[in-house]
Design a protein around this nucleic acid. Structure first.
Lengths: 264, 264
DNA sequence: CTTGATCCCGACGCTACGTCATAGTTTTAA
DNA sequence: TTAAAACTATGACGTAGCGTCGGGATCAAG
């Protein structure tokens, strides 16, 4: 038989036969006078074996040894089958995990490049469409935060978001944010001070609910990245106000931490 | 940030960053004086996006367009997610099918390179251990038959095997087979004739149960292969007897087919 | 000043073949 | 009989997502 016949009867391509030859899975048959390969029935059987084992999921590199094992008297490939089965089970679990995440993303209408947990939290921010139409800088910050925050910090964030609704602060914060965005690069000092103080006043009830320990932790690489992302398209005045607001928050936190340790 | 820092914070390797650059998924950042890449927070975010989408199962080649899609205002990647989900579901089904076959093989203790259906049928041949310790030529013939037989022929084979037990012919056939195997290459004519006739006599009740149509079908490539496999290590006398037995069976079949058509 | 860690770039390796490209051979239709 | 169609052979590149050398330059620390 010539390659094409073997290929047809075995349900593979001629290229596949050559590939099996190259891997040593199929012995090179005798050649006819013109140099064509001349296959025997045993060769066809061997092709079928290789094809079958490959279709079960064995990598071709292992098919050779498995066939050798099966060719020994009273042999069975139970061990190899067990191993393969476990491997397949692992792959299935992996794929199912991916599908599970996809289902969650769809249900919560979260962008697929955001972690589900983080997306769920932000979805609860009333009146804010940050997930639906984020500006590039927002996107960067969101992505960094979502991937770099620790579980503890995510829980804290969840608390904050819940408090936003609870304290009915959302509208006020949006208004403040709009004023920050509108701030001119050369805004005079009084305007900056006013914005900083009003922001701190508005945030006061929220700050009360924070766990001071989560805000006084040492700076991490993640923090620097987030800072960079947040400041990316801010003008100097905006950066100044932003920095002063956070300094104010940290000052409050430090004071509270000292009160706590003094009380103990 | 330098590549190593980005890699660490994003949970990838430096090589992966370079790979994303090569695919155009990650823009080449500015270089410092020494030629090192100088990444920004936005770059880190981009790496995280790529990593996330890839972990969901998107091929990197598609990740680029999906991110572009998400970057448009009010966009969602619902379509891409649907498609990916279907793809994952297909892969899972495929893997489960493989596991199902493996489970069947183990349950029936069938060699993994034999089709389950065929193995089950042969397991029912009482007193024959052909599956447990086949000779090379047997293996070839079994494999070819199992892969080349049509569904109809497999059903016929099932009938034959059932009849073997039913008619209590197994021991007689094994005895005949032993005599065929022991036949010398120069066995005299009387010995051959005796073996042929005894075989046909023993097989008679079995032949009665066959469906003549399945035995008189035109020769196929599969038949030639099977013949070659079966004759591979037979000596001339054995081939002769073997051929005459099958000629005898065919003669009986033809006679029956004629009787049937005459009766109609 | 040497050593170890990092950086750059280029290139091969892995899986299971598909797909040219080039050249000779066999089969078939005109 | 001849020319086109179909096969066969070898060699080699392409695919997906990086891992892993190899060679050369840079940087931080002892």
């Amino acid at each position: 038989m010539r390659s094409n016949e073997v290929a047809k009867v075995a349900g593979v391509t001629v290229r596949t036969l050559r590939h099996y030859h190259q891997l040593g899975l199929l012995p090179e048959p005798a050649r006819t006078a013109n140099g064509y390969r001349d296959y025997s029935a045993a060769d066809v059987a061997r092709v079928l074996r290789v094809k079958r084992l490959a279709s079960l999921g064995f990598p071709l590199a292992r098919v050779g040894e498995i066939m050798a094992e099966l060719d020994e008297p009273h042999a069975s490939a139970t061990g190899a089958l067990d191993e393969l089965d476990r491997e397949l089970a692992l792959q299935i679990e992996h794929l199912q995990e991916q599908r599970r995440i996809i289902a969650e993303l769809r249900e919560a209408q979260i962008d697929p490049d955001l972690p589900v947990r983080f997306g769920r939290i932000l979805r609860n921010v009333a009146g804010v469409d940050i997930l639906d139409n984020p500006r590039p800088a927002d996107r960067t910050a969101l992505l960094l935060a979502s991937h770099l925050y620790t579980e503890e910090e995510l829980q804290e964030l969840e608390t904050v978001v819940a408090s936003l609704a609870d304290l009915d602060l959302a509208d006020d914060l949006i208004a403040l944010n709009d004023r920050l965005e509108a701030l001119a690069a050369n805004a005079p000092e009084p305007e900056r001070t006013a914005l900083v103080e009003e922001s701190l006043a508005t945030l006061a009830p929220l700050i009360d609910r924070f766990d001071a320990r989560n805000w006084l932790r040492p700076d991490t690489a993640a923090d620097h990245l987030l800072d960079e992302a947040a400041n990316e398209d801010l003008n100097p005045a905006q950066q100044d106000v932003y920095d002063r607001i956070f300094e104010g928050i940290e000052a409050i936190m430090r004071r509270r931490a000292e009160e706590v340790s003094a009380a103990e």
